[in-house]
Design a protein around this nucleic acid. Sequence first.
DNA 1: AAAAGGGTCAACCGCAGGATT
DNA 2: CAATCCTGCGGTTGACCCTTT
Length: 307
Amino acid sequence: MGRQPCCDKVGLKKGPWTAEEDKKLISFILTNGQCCWRAVPKLAGLLRCGKSCRLRWTNYLRPDLKRGLLSEYEEKMVIDLHAQLGNRWSKIASHLPGRTDNEIKNHWNTHIKKKLKKMGIDPVTHKPLPNATEQTQNQQQLHQPVEEQQNQQPLQVDLDPKVDPNKEPETSLESSTLNEDKIVMSPFDTMEPMNGFCTDEVPIIEPDEILMPCAPSSSSTSTSSSNSTNFLEDLQLPDFEWSCNYNDNNDHNTTTMTLWDDDFISNLNNWLINEDDDSDGNQVFDAPLTHFSRMLMDSESWVPGLF
DNA sequence: AAAAGGGTCAACCGCAGGATT
DNA sequence: CAATCCTGCGGTTGACCCTTT
C-alpha cells in the first residue's frame, strides 16, 4: 500500500545551504529539469530532503527570480492582493512575476505591516485602526478601506481566462467564498495611473521565450542580493529584459527582470566544469558551454514547468 | 570598541489536499 | 476504498547583520 516514505530524515543535512550544495542542485536541475523532488537529493548527491531542495530552488536558485526589495508598485499590488486573498502568499506571489511567496510573506511581515500600521490601517482587515482617524485620512488617499471599495463599483480583474464568464460576479470583498482567481481591484488601483498594466497582463515566460544571449553582452549590473553565500552574486546572471507596460511610482517605464546575468554562462561553465572538484572526485556536470545555451533555448529540452 | 537591541530573511516545521498504490 | 505518499502552503524560528547606546 502507498509508497515509500519521502525521506527518513536520518543523516540529512539541515540549515543554510552551501555554495557547493547550490552548485549540485542547479546543475542537476539544469540537466534534468524539475522532476520528482523526492529523487532529487539522491540523484544530485545532496544530503538534503526533497522538500528542502524544492524550497531552495523555488525561493532562491530559480533563475527567473527578481531579487532586491519590492518596488513601490509591487508593494501596492501586494497590499491590494492581500486585501482580497488574505495570507495566501502563493496566490499573491503568482501575480507578481519573479517573486516568491516566502519573499512576499517576509516583506509583508517586516515592511508592509509596519507601514500600514503607521498609516493607521489594520494590516489584517485593511480597515482603519480605531484610534487612527488622523492617519486614516492620510491613508485613504493611498488605499481606501474595504467598505468604501464595496460602495464603489469595483473593477473586476479576471485573472484567469478559464473562469466561467457566466458566473455571478463577486461584489463583496469580504465574501467568504471569494474566488481567488477573480481579483477585485481596489478603487485605489482604478485611480492609479496604471499605464495600461493589469495583473492579468503579466507576461508569462514560457521556456521557449527565454532568450539566452550566447555571446557575453556588455557589462550589466546585477541586482542586489542579500545572500548569505553570495552565490548568485558570484553567478552574475545575464539580464533578461522584459518589458512591462506599467510604471511604478518611481517613473520607471520598464521593469527589468533579471533572469541570468551576462557572465552566467561562462561563470557557470567554469564553476561546474573547471572548478568542480568534488571532494569525492565526482564531476557534477561536464556539459560544454554550448550545451547550456542550446538547452536553454530549446523548449523541448525543458521539462515543462521548470520555471 | 563592545554590548544590546532590533530588523531581515533563509530555512524549517507541520498540515492539508490531491495523487498514487 | 483505505492507506500512504508527495507537493505545496502558511506560520514560525533563529542566525546574521546593522544600528544604537
